[in-house]
């Protein structure tokens, strides 16, 4: 449920609007639910509204944790 996607803010517009981008596709959304955004921030968008920021550092850490699982395997297998 609750289809939402991570997008990058590429322009802030008046009236709580912003243009976000994913994979070269741009859409104007509302950012009224998230304060203090700047261009370049990543936000998670649901039904045309940014719900929250996406934290790039946390994303990298999560991916690193996932990759470690594979490295463990290699160690065991080798």
């Amino acid at each position: 449920m609750c289809l939402a996607i991570p997008t990058r803010v590429i322009a802030l517009l008046p009236d709580g609007q912003a243009v976000v981008e994913l994979g070269g596709v741009r859409k104007t959304i509302s950012v009224e639910l998230v304060d203090d955004l700047t261009v370049g921030d990543y936000v998670i968008v649901h039904v045309g509204y940014a719900l929250t920021r996406l934290d790039p550092e946390e994303a990298e850490q999560t991916l690193a944790l996932m990759r470690e699982a594979g490295i463990d395997t290699a160690g065991v297998a080798g």
Partner: peptide, 12 residues
């Protein structure tokens, strides 16, 4: 590829 590593980790 990461999925394969995670799958092995879960199985382990």
């Amino acid at each position: 590829e990461i999925a394969r590593g995670l799958a092995a980790a879960i199985a382990r």
